[in-house]
Write a protein that binds this DNA or RNA. Structure first.
Length: 425
DNA sequence: CACCGTCAAGTCGCA
DNA sequence: TGCGACTTGACGGTG
């Protein structure tokens, strides 16, 4: 039973994936970005290991233009050493990694060239997971695709092209219900027909339910049976609706209460849960800690507190104090209370006073080591923010640059610096 | 340095 | 018939 997150690790230094635009592509730049992105991936894997996250979706963007004619490099050979090192870390920690080709990867398009590009993309993803020396429980998740005016023909085309795929690809492919075209019943039947396991996506199912009267738990149970022994623990996707967002938009964070209701309703069906949520690793750690609260060491929650504290302080000094006291007393239900307080802080509106206060606290790291002009610059920026003349981002950006310059590792891994305009308005 | 338009790909739905 | 949404934040050009 593992809980994981997808593609991006927030608030962890140098885990950004880099890109290049088609018009700027050169051999050297592709090579450089590939190397850099593999280094970033390694740092994400390190973070997951250090925080006991054993389920992770690797971004398709690690290799730029991976399945595009612009990139003819044999990256899996050129960067073999990096792949092996990352793969060893994954294996050593018992982490399960997956990949999820995007919305442009289609097996059932009526346009042959679209299908061929789709197959190329699957070859890329399979090659990536194999370069990491993962076994076939490392999955490639795929949607069925479009309807093109005639669903049954579209499904036939899917089956036809699925059967053209190589065995290594087929042994990794898993099908997922989507929010528009193919509901779980159709995907389940299709999975049965081609012999592919099925991932049940809770939010997609909610938006695009199948006709047949079955409960979520029954569907999850049925889908579990499509997973063979070598496919690993059956997996589902879980996300929550962003309030006020487009239907199907993923929420900023996973609300613990709602998650626990869902989790309890499963009554211990053995599954892995991939969270699809904007705050990524933050929710993955939160959810996995909350469902096994009694097993969580104080040390682990202290690590979380270290990452959250300035973010909380910038939202509310009161909640910050409550959490400080909580960590001091550390009562029986500390884990759940901790995240409940974090959630309370997250929904508060922007409070310039609290932001200013947090800025000053962080400035404490620099006030005795900085130059006069840095000191002056900071106070000007903070002042301008307090007067409502600039965004908090400009203060944060400045503090970030200072943290980098003076190598304040503690700050470089603080959630305070996560760029997210929606989080603090 | 701050700001903002653009981005490799396919399909669907709407004007 | 053509364009925006989907999703997303980094890139990269401009002032």
């Amino acid at each position: 039973m593992a809980i994981g997150y997808a593609c991006i690790t927030l608030g962890v230094y140098q885990t950004t994936l880099h890109r290049i635009m088609a018009k700027n592509v050169t051999e050297d730049k592709l090579r450089e970005i590939t190397k850099q992105n593999l280094e970033a991936l390694e740092k994400m894997i390190d973070f997951n290991r250090e925080n006991e996250i054993s389920l992770f979706r690797i971004s398709s963007d690690v290799i730029p233009f991976a399945s595009h004619p612009l990139n003819a490099q044999r990256w899996w050979e050129e960067h073999q050493e990096q792949f092996h090192r990352i793969g060893d870390k994954i294996a050593a920690s018992g982490m399960r990694v997956s990949m999820h080709p995007g919305q442009y990867t289609l097996l059932n398009s009526p346009h042959p060239e679209v299908v061929e590009r789709g197959i190329e993309d699957l070859i890329y993803h399979e090659r990536f997971l194999t370069a990491l020396k993962t076994n076939r429980s490392s999955k490639l998740i795929l949607h069925v695709g479009g309807i093109y005016g005639d669903k049954s023909t579209a499904i036939e085309r899917f089956i036809y092209n699925y059967n053209r795929l190589s065995d290594p690809i087929k042994s990794r492919l898993v099908l997922e219900n989507d929010e528009r075209c193919y509901g779980i019943e159709e995907v389940y039947n299709l999975g049965k027909a081609v012999g592919a396991p099925v991932v049940f996506d809770v939010l997609h199912h909610h938006i695009n339910p199948s006709q047949k009267e079955r409960t979520v738990k029954e569907w999850i149970h049925l889908c579990s049976q499509t997973w063979g022994e070598k496919d690993g623990v059956p997996k589902i996707h879980y996300s929550q609706q962003q309030l006020g967002g487009r239907i199907g938009a993923h929420s900023q964070t996973i609300a613990i209460k709602e998650f626990l209701n869902f989790y309890t309703s499963l009554e211990g069906i053995p599954i892995d849960i991939m969270l699809e949520v904007k705050d990524k690793n933050l929710s993955a750690i939160k959810c996995s800690y909350v469902i096994q609260a009694h097993k969580i060491l104080k040390k682990s929650l202290e690590k979380e507190w270290a990452r959250y504290k300035y973010l909380v302080l910038s939202q509310s000094a009161t909640i910050y104090q409550q959490m400080r006291q909580l960590m001091k007393r550390y009562p029986e239900d500390a884990v759940k209370t901790f995240y409940t307080l974090v959630e309370q802080a997250q929904v508060l509106p922007l409070d310039r006073g609290a932001c200013q206060n947090a800025g000053l606290h962080i400035w404490g790291y620099f006030k005795n080591i900085c130059t006069e002009s840095e000191k002056k610059n900071f106070h000007i920026k903070l002042e301008r923010f307090a007067e409502g003349k600039t965004k908090y981002e400009s203060v944060k950006n400045y503090l970030w640059k200072m943290a980098e310059k003076y190598e304040q590792t503690y700050l470089l891994n603080a959630y305070y610096f996560i760029n997210d305009k929606t989080q603090s308005q």
